[in-house]
Design a protein around this nucleic acid. Structure first.
Lengths: 156, 156
DNA sequence: TCATTACACTTAGCGTAGCTAACTAATAAC
DNA sequence: GTTATTAGTTAGCTACGCTAAGTGTAATGA
């Protein structure tokens, strides 16, 4: 079913390529800006993203994690190697199928993730808090749309 | 993180950190997805971004380009080296101040940029064209908001 | 004038992240 | 009991951030 509209009556229909270009550009610039917050906590974007899958999604296998992160196996393997070395998570061989490895976050990992997100997001959140509630809601809705599209999902 | 509905008068005020987190996450996933389109044309995101500054902003110096791209000098130097090798742009020593180098796009560079943007954006635009006009307009507005925030502008 | 300072850019080298191809080890299928 | 499939790793490539240090040009000032 279609969603509730926030359209301004009489506004011209936006051109998809133009909107795509703008959204694309905004995403690039936003992430470049946020990257600068990274070294404060020592969690890169890739680590933070993977860690949040593990922390919020519960224990997960390497393959599922690669899928969730939309990257290939070796990328995850190396990412996890560094994070395990840093004590953020641990691997456990599956007792049934011994090819499978389960990834679990350590308390340190969970704590660092929360802290990292807080920091990385803080600057952005601070800017956002200057917006009107309507604009905030608009951004939330936009993020939802983009997320769905990025996942390649046909619909909600 | 709870899922929130579209902005409706009377809805609770969205929490800035929550929105920030979602926007952040959406940006990451979107770009990861778009990156997959890159090899089709042979222009990476960084190249495309720099090239578009050169193409649309006219000839530019290395320093200004680094500034525009929000990266350090050496990053631009190396980026340009590859692009010059590939015939996408050319360097010219400033005749007045011989420390300065002007970057200009070649016809090939301009052409490739247009083509690259078209391709990189095509998939996204295709998805977007399935949206209602209202949602398209919402995304356009969201991109505008994010762009302003990413630039660190105080904004209206 | 000539030594010093400032500036624009480059080189060297490090770290992180993406990839493919080829490998090991375990399981499933015939 | 082979053979095929699956899960994950290793090796090695590219790209793109960074800092520190180097080169060459311009500006300054004793």
């Amino acid at each position: 079913m279609t969603r509730r509209s926030t359209a301004v009556p009489g506004a011209p229909r936006p051109d998809p390529p133009v909107v795509a270009d703008r959204v694309h550009s905004a995403a690039i610039h936003l992430l470049r800006r946020l990257r600068k917050q990274d070294e404060a906590i020592g969690l890169t974007a890739a680590r933070m993203s993977a860690l949040s899958v593990v922390v919020f999604g519960g224990p997960v296998t390497i393959g599922r994690l690669a899928e969730a992160e939309q990257v290939r196996g070796p990328t995850i393997t190396r990412l996890l190697a560094g994070m395990e070395r840093d004590g953020l998570l641990k691997r456990t061989r599956d007792t049934g199928d011994r090819r499978v490895i389960w990834i679990k976050a350590t308390p340190k990992g969970s704590r660092l993730l929360q802290e990292g997100r807080r920091r990385r997001i803080a600057a952005l959140a601070a800017e956002l808090s200057g917006l009107e509630p309507a604009d905030l809601a608009l951004l939330a809705r936009a993020a939802e749309l983009i997320e769905r599209i990025a996942r390649g999902a046909p619909g909600p």
